[in-house]
């Protein structure tokens, strides 16, 4: 697939070109690349936040181009969990309310049991004692753990992490990644991590590099 956008002078700007990627259940992928290489665009495409201008994305073998807007939203909410570099927690809400948020979009019993499910999830990431804390009272590591709990609370099959340790120190970043890996493994979810950090990239079983919009396998890991 490819992704092109129009520039001010109407000349097309190719962001992704001929990307061919399969993500299976339980996969651990890392994608590295320079700034502007198209990493975030790829993540947005995988998370159904964006659509390719060429080619096709299949989700569970179904071509997503045929999905209605609502279908894309529902699929994303049910099967995809996002983790952002800047955590993107909802300000003013407690950790518990943040983790409960995705469950508000569930239509089943999880909606009605959202408090107990979110509490259990926060306990699982070691924040059972910070349920009532708002983001401004949490450390960076704690905020990212809340973000992880929020991303995984609906049991997604695909976790997309955009620089998950980018705003954390090395030690905290490692513990966050270990936690992410542990929870993803427990739920057999695929984890796609975009990172600048070779050490974080090395944790994945399949590693890729984006160069000028082209995705290439990346075996060389500098530690």
């Amino acid at each position: 697939m490819g992704r092109t956008v129009s520039r001010v002078d109407d000349r097309p700007l190719v962001i992704l070109n001929g990307v061919d990627l399969v993500v299976d259940v339980g996969d651990r992928l890392s994608i590295v690349g320079r700034s502007g290489s198209g990493k975030s665009t790829l993540l947005n495409l995988l998370g159904l936040l964006d659509s390719p201008t060429e080619g096709e994305i299949f989700f569970d073998d179904a071509p997503t181009r045929q999905f209605s807007a609502r279908q894309r939203d529902v699929t994303r909410g049910r099967d995809v969990g996002f983790i952002f570099q800047q955590f993107n927690l909802l300000q003013g809400r407690t950790a518990l309310e943040n983790v409960m948020t995705p469950l508000l979009y569930d239509t089943g019993s999880a909606f009605w049991r959202r408090r107990s499910i979110a509490t259990a999830m926060l306990e699982r990431v070691g924040l059972g004692h910070r349920l009532a804390s708002t983001p401004d009272r949490l450390s960076g590591g704690e905020q990212q753990r809340v973000a992880i709990a929020r991303a995984l609370v609906r049991g997604p099959r695909l976790i997309l992490a955009d620089e998950p340790t980018g705003a954390l120190d090395i030690e905290t970043g490692e513990s966050v990644m270990a936690l992410l890996d542990e929870i993803a493994t427990a739920s057999s979810a695929a984890l796609v991590t975009i990172t600048h950090d070779p050490a974080i990239a090395a944790l994945a079983t399949r590693r890729f590099r984006l160069e000028r919009g082209v995705l290439v396998p990346w075996a060389e890991v500098l530690l």
């Binding site: 936040l49 807007a69 939203d73 529902v74 994303r76 049910r78 993107n88 979009y105």
Partner: peptide
């Protein structure tokens, strides 16, 4: 706007 974007990333439909 950012908060609305975050909610959309967690499955909030446009209608919702």
């Amino acid at each position: 706007i950012q908060e609305i974007g975050i909610r959309r990333s967690f499955g909030a439909t446009a209608r919702r």
